[in-house]
Amino acid sequence: MQTSIKPGQVWLDTKGERIHAHGGSVITVDGVHYWYGENKEFSAPGSGIWHWGVRCYSSTDLYNWEDRGLIIPPVEDDEDSPLHPTQLVDRPHIIHNAETNKFVAWLKIMTKGSLQRSTVLTADHILGPYEIVRTWLKPLDMSAGDFDLVVDPHDGKGYYYFERVHSEMICADLTTDYTDVTGYYSTHFPQPQPPFVREAPAHLYRNRLHYLLTSGTTGYYPNPSEAAVSRSYHGPFEVLGDLHPTDESRTSFHSQISSVFTHPDKKDLYIAIADRWLPRYLDHGARAHDAFVGHFAPGKDGDEPMEEFADVDTTIADYVWLPIRFDGDRPVIEWRDEWTIEEFD
C-alpha cells in the first residue's frame, strides 16, 4: 500500500506492475479517480510500436491505482486506422458532457511530416467501450498538436486549447456535444519556430482566473515551463514566466506537464501531472535545450533526425506529480521528494 506520492520514482499499480498512463489526465466520477493515458508498455526502441491503446487506472486516494485495462484498445489489423499501434497517438483527454451524458475522448494523431490531426470517440461510461465518431479531424483546417479540453463549471460550455503545429496556441469553442469545433477561436503566443513555440497546454481555473501552463517544443527533452493568466478562456493572456523558478536545471524538474488535476474535495489543491520521459538523462537538460535551439536555427532542416533521439525508451518513462502553490495569483511548483494529499485542507 502506498501512503504518499513520490515524484520521479517508479510508480507501480496494485498488482506491482509499472503504470502506463503517459501524457495523461485524471477525472473523478462518482467519487472515484480515473487516471488514463498512453499505454507505452511495448514501445521499446526498434519495436515499431508507438502506443498500445489508452490505459486507465482507478483509485480513491490517488496513491494506489488499480489497472482497469485498455479503455481504447489498439486496432491491430488495419494499418490505416488512427488507432493502429504504428500511428503516433498522443495525449488523450476525456471530458463528460452533462447534456448528452457521454464521455468524449479526443486523441492527437501525428502522421508523416508535421501534419497532426484528431480522432474523437464517445462512451456511456468512463471505462468504455468507446466508439469512434470522427477520424482524421483537422479542426479549423489547422494541423492540431498537443491540446487540453476544458468544460466550464458554470454553464457546461466546452473549449479546446491546442498547439497550431509549430506556430501558436489556439482556443476554440467546442460544439454542444463536444465532438467538434464551432468555428469560433482565438490565437495566443505566436512564435516563429520550435523550440520557442508553446505546446502541451494544461488549463487551470482558480479565483475567476484562467491559467495556461505550457512547455517549449523540444521533443522528449524537458525545457522551462511557462505560465500565463487571463480573465477569460479566450484571453488575452499575460505571460507570468517559469512555473519552476527554483529548478536550476531549467527543465521543469526534468518533466513535462500533461494536465492539471483539481482535487474535488480540497479547497485549493491543484496537482500538476507530468511525465519524465527520459529518466536516464537527468543531467543533460541544459545541453539538450541548447542542442534543440541549434537544431531549429534558421537554415537548418527541421526534419533532420538527431542521434540523441534514436534510443528514447518510453517504456520506462516515469511521472512527476507536484502540487501547485500560489504566490498571490502566480502559480509556482516546487520540488518535493514526497508529499501527501492529507497535507491540504
Rank of each mutant, 00 (worst) to 15 (best):
T3P: 02
P7Y: 03
Q9W: 04
K15H: 09
G24P: 01
V26L: 11
V29M: 01
D30P: 00
G37I: 02
S43H: 02
S43T: 09
P45V: 11
R55V: 06
S59I: 03
S59Y: 00
I72Q: 00
L83C: 10
P85C: 11
R91I: 06
H93A: 13
I94H: 00
I94Q: 01
T111H: 12
L115S: 14
A123D: 07
G128K: 00
P129K: 03
P129Y: 03
I132E: 05
D141P: 04
E168C: 13
T179Q: 06
D180S: 15
Y185I: 09
T187Q: 12
P192A: 12
R198H: 15
Y205L: 15
L212F: 07
T214V: 15
Y220E: 06
P222V: 11
A227R: 01
F237A: 04
G241N: 12
L243R: 01
H244W: 07
T251W: 00
H254S: 15
P264A: 09
K266G: 07
Y270L: 09
I271N: 00
I273V: 14
A274L: 10
A274W: 01
R276H: 09
L278T: 13
R280D: 15
L282C: 07
M306E: 12
E308S: 11
A310I: 06
I324R: 00
R325F: 08
F326K: 08
V332L: 08
E334W: 03
W335F: 12
D337R: 11
E342G: 13
D345R: 08
